[in-house]
Design a protein around this nucleic acid. Structure first.
Lengths: 335, 335
DNA sequence: CTGAAAGCGCTAACAC
DNA sequence: GTGTTAGCGCTTTCAG
């Protein structure tokens, strides 16, 4: 072990099989080759442990069998589940997936998108870092892009999302229905689409409930992460007139908010809570929480399927697919 | 928008700057070029929005700035945390990371390893699917490999792990110390190193406790996943003489086991429980559980650092780094 | 310090 | 069906 053995090339296989390099290439690309030569080539390839060099192939074809999936937080189970969906579909189609963690940082995201271009990747699925994420360079180069979870600002690309506004409204409404009177909202960064829309839903349900206070006093922008949720929850609880329930706009912030509630022995339903997105490893979480379930894996599956269609040449105008989210409120008995 | 604009090449930049292609290449590779020409080149490159084509560069150099990270379960927070560590280090060094989900399947894993070779990737970090995972083809081609979490069977590669046996022993011992008398073990697949070693630790502590029963009667092999943990837990609870405590060999199976315990209203400490690996989103889990904390992110950081050293030409003999894991038992007061 | 030129391994015209 | 050949865009001797 340890000697360096360079990869066999198509030329060596050709020589051993007594055919031309082109024929070897054809065999490995499923083109018409006589059964006889085909067998010869395969035998030679086996003998030399030949594997086609993908780099060379990509350079020649200007297009690789790799997809990029750009997400803002690889440690968020929502995104890993989505990634899992993408990976499954891609893998079945013979593609592999580069998972790029943008960390919600536009620069890091831009760098990954550059790489996708300069590596001639087949296409990109992106959950944009924020409103200003820019996929023009991809589009300009004719690389297929599909937006997932968040749809990009004013650009014509395929997108697959859930109905954020409706989900936010329904979750908030459920809280009012459960008898809470003062429902706060913890949402994400003010420049992230999903954060805005979910808060919109909350605002709309709050307004419809004809509350006596100013809704905006109970809106906190945070960062879609656990610690952000903790902090936001603390802020809300320390208000002069604290809310008696909160709508939290993503799974991770819900975990943080819940931690604070647990520490203060005010677990739901003592304080009402609704989460947009399933609590990770839900079975460990207390009952009594209203949850908007998101089809995370399915988002990934759908996005990957759409992307592959585009890669195969589908030219129809950009589509937006909105996936259904379901809501589950706690049993009345738990209240 | 929508027109296809092919990427500018080094030749076009050279023409515009009035220098040779080689000089453009040198500028972009930080080699010695006169300040004057260098400026000319940069200006031309800006104007043409030139980005070097990485595929071509890789083909020529037979080596790319991409690392592969092969893990058995992308939905396991332990691995995403590890991945995060790898990504951070790689990113700082100008590398990107392809995350490959092997699903614990040797064939899928082998396919990803083939791709790593045929794409000339810089190196591979692998948490092997099982004992028989084969990285010889990488080694034979001189590609650096570092094993993480699980170290490969009888192959000379760098590895970074935790002390699985000691952790299993300590966790089990803690359970006996807490007063439990019959400690079962739920571990992973019989052909996965970590599963074997953690169970070994359990066996050793159990034997040392001079129990009157046959330890092996209380050992269940499962699959390191939530549902597997559920099933294993049910099996154990339905024994004629059920255990009064369980040592669970990974985080996900602990979640499953805990679910069953919660459903049956036998939450710890009613039944004792120790988990090898932090419970995901621990704050949501009940207290009273003994936990062997794993430095997941640090495993990734260390592995990536070692891999980069190898890529830079480090030739020292293979090293194995064993990272420290700490254990936390519940307060006596909670019992 | 700079340029000319030869490929890296593969695919795709183009001939036969 | 099959072979010949010309590159894909870049790096890297080798001269100068």
């Amino acid at each position: 072990m340890g000697w360096e053995e360079s990869m066999a090339t198509i030329y060596e296989v050709a020589a051993l099989a007594g055919v031309s390099p082109a024929t070897v290439s054809r065999v490995f690309n499923g083109m018409n080759v006589s059964a006889e030569k085909s067998k010869l080539v395969r035998k030679a390839a086996d003998e030399l442990k030949f594997t086609p060099n993908r780099t060379a192939r990509t350079l020649r074809k200007r297009n690789s069998e790799v997809l990029a999936l750009v997400i803002p937080d690889i440690e968020n189970p929502f995104f890993t589940s989505l990634a899992r969906g993408v990976e499954d579909v891609a893998h079945d189609a013979g593609y592999s997936v580069v998972l790029c963690n943008s960390d919600g940082d536009r620069e890091k995201e831009a760098k990954y998108l550059d790489i996708a271009v300069s590596e001639d990747m087949g296409g990109v699925i992106i959950a944009a870092a924020d409103e200003h994420s820019n996929v023009d360079s991809l589009l300009a180069r004719g690389r297929p892009v599909v937006a997932v979870d968040r749809s990009p600002h004013g650009v014509e690309v395929d997108a697959v999302t859930v109905d954020n506004r409706a989900g936010g409204r329904a979750a908030t409404q459920a809280l009012f229905d459960q008898g809470y009177r003062r429902v706060a909202c913890i949402t994400g960064p003010a420049d992230v689409e999903t954060a805005i829309l979910r808060a919109d839903g909350w605002r709309s349900a709050t307004t419809a409930a004809k509350v006596a206070y100013r809704p905006e006093d109970y809106l906190v922008n945070s960062d879609f992460r656990v610690d952000g949720g903790r902090e936001a929850m603390r802020t809300l609880l320390s208000m002069e007139e604290p809310p008696d329930a909160i709508f939290v706009a993503n799974n991770l912030m819900s975990v943080g908010a819940l931690q604070v509630l647990i520490e203060r022995r005010q677990m739901p339903p003592a304080v009402g809570m609704a989460s947009f997105g399933d609590l990770p490893f839900a079975a460990l979480a207390p009952a009594g929480i209203t949850v908007v379930h998101l089809p995370a894996r399915h988002l990934g599956v759908t996005a990957a399927t759409m992307l592959l269609e585009r890669i195969r040449g589908d030219q129809q105008p950009a589509r937006t697919v909105v996936l259904r989210n379901t809501i589950s409120a706690p049993e009345a008995s738990t209240l």
